[in-house]
Simulated assay, not measured.
Amino acid sequence: MASGKSFPAISPERFAPTPERPLRAKSRVLEHLADIQPHRHDWAQLVFSMTGAVRVSTEASTYIVPPSRAVWIPPGLVHAVTAIEQCDLRTLYLGPALLAGEAWRVGRVLEVSPLLRELVLALPALPDPTPAESAADAARRTGIEALLLIELQRARPLPLGVALPRDARLRRLCEAMLQEPGRHAGLEDWALEAGASPRTLSRLFREQLGTSFAQWRSQLLLAHALTLAARGRPMSHIAAELGYASASAFTAMVTRTVGMPPSRFFAEA
């Protein structure tokens, strides 16, 4: 987790879906590097930020997403949230009957359309007990909820998750890379910091994650680069922040990894 100030989850039970209100909204501002500690609940959750990038972590994966993306968390999945920068966090809590089907039983990243964003903003974000609604307000809320569910079902899934290992040594290394991906470029330097041999770490990446160190790091860098690009950072700044000596070296990595130049990748992703 990040080294900033930590916060426990704020009374999620006060926003718990009920048969009468199966869809609830919550909002809060997280300061830079603030954590919402690992927790779980019996309902599904959609997490995204109106401003600022966030990292959502589970036991098996971590998702680094800019404001135009959201993370779907199925019921019962332990998860934590870290603010990569100050963010205006929005959360939807959904009763288990609202979105059924196999696709909704696993965590994933979803595209947030402009309409979906505005619908979430329009939902009342009030904990229980909520003030009494007028008939007109209740009808408006019900209409927003119905359209929001339709838009959520249309949301495009995106392969932006980064797998995490179970091995404690490798997990600590991956967490360090997540916090500061540009600190070292090669496995040898990371191995020295982790107190393990490059050969051992290379074997663990293959056994635990089914990939090489270089491939895993490329996916991590792409996720971070996407959040920086979403904030309008120029390519040279993105390359420097991620530890590349030049924008051309960074461009070569992106092109090699995803088969297209960064400008096209960021536009499509």
Score class of each variant (00 low, 15 high):
Gly4Ile: 02
Trp43Thr: 10
Ser212Gln: 08
Glu118Ser: 15
Pro74Cys: 04
Pro124His: 06
Ser3Phe: 12
His79Val: 09
Ile238Gln: 06
Ile73Lys: 09
Phe213Lys: 00
Leu242Thr: 07
Glu102Thr: 11
Thr18Leu: 06
Pro181Ile: 12
Ser68Phe: 13
Ser202Ile: 06
Leu178His: 03
Leu201Ala: 03
Leu126Asp: 13
His224Gln: 07
Glu133Met: 10
Ala245Gly: 11
Val258Ala: 13
Leu178Ala: 01
Phe48Gly: 13
His184Met: 10
Pro181Asp: 03
Gln219Asn: 12
Gln179Tyr: 08
Glu13Phe: 05
Leu152Tyr: 01
Leu149Pro: 07
Ile64Met: 06
Glu111Pro: 02
Pro96Ala: 09
Leu116Trp: 04
Leu152Thr: 02
Leu158Gly: 05
Glu85Tyr: 02
Ile150Asp: 12
Ser27Gly: 05
Phe213Ala: 06
Arg140Ser: 08
Gln45Arg: 13
Ser246Gly: 11
Pro74His: 03
Ala103Thr: 14
Pro159Gln: 04
Glu13Leu: 14
Met253Ser: 08
Phe48Asn: 07
Ala139Gln: 05
Ala60Pro: 00
Gln37Met: 11
Ala191Cys: 09
Ile144Tyr: 00
Ala80Glu: 08
Arg55Thr: 04
Ala146Asn: 02
Gly161Val: 08
Ser113Lys: 07
Ala60Arg: 13
Ala60Leu: 09
Phe213Ile: 05
Glu20Leu: 15
Ser246Leu: 01
Pro67Lys: 04
Pro74Met: 06
Lys26Gly: 11
Glu111His: 13
Pro66His: 08
Pro8Met: 02
Ala83Phe: 02
Leu221Arg: 11
Val71His: 04
Arg141Ala: 11
Leu242Gln: 04
Leu170Trp: 07
Pro124Gln: 12
Ala132Pro: 03
Ala25Trp: 00
Thr62Trp: 01
Glu133Cys: 10
Pro181Tyr: 04
Gly182Leu: 10
Gly101His: 00
Arg171Met: 03
Phe266Ala: 12
Val162Gln: 00
Pro12Ala: 14
Pro19Tyr: 04
Arg21Ser: 14
Ser68Ala: 13
Pro165Ala: 15
Met260Ile: 12
Thr251Ala: 15
Leu220Asp: 07
His224Glu: 01
Trp216Val: 10
Asp189Glu: 11
Pro124Trp: 05
Arg256Pro: 00
Pro181Phe: 06
Cys174Glu: 04
Ala53Arg: 02
Leu123Met: 06
Gly210Asn: 04
Leu160Arg: 08
Val56Ile: 05
Val47Asp: 05
Ala185Thr: 14
Gly186Leu: 15
Asp88Tyr: 07
Arg203Cys: 11
Ala191Lys: 11
Phe213Arg: 01
Gly107Phe: 05
Arg203Ala: 15
Arg21Phe: 09
Val71Lys: 09
Ser248Lys: 10
Ala240Tyr: 07
Gly76Trp: 02
Ala70His: 00
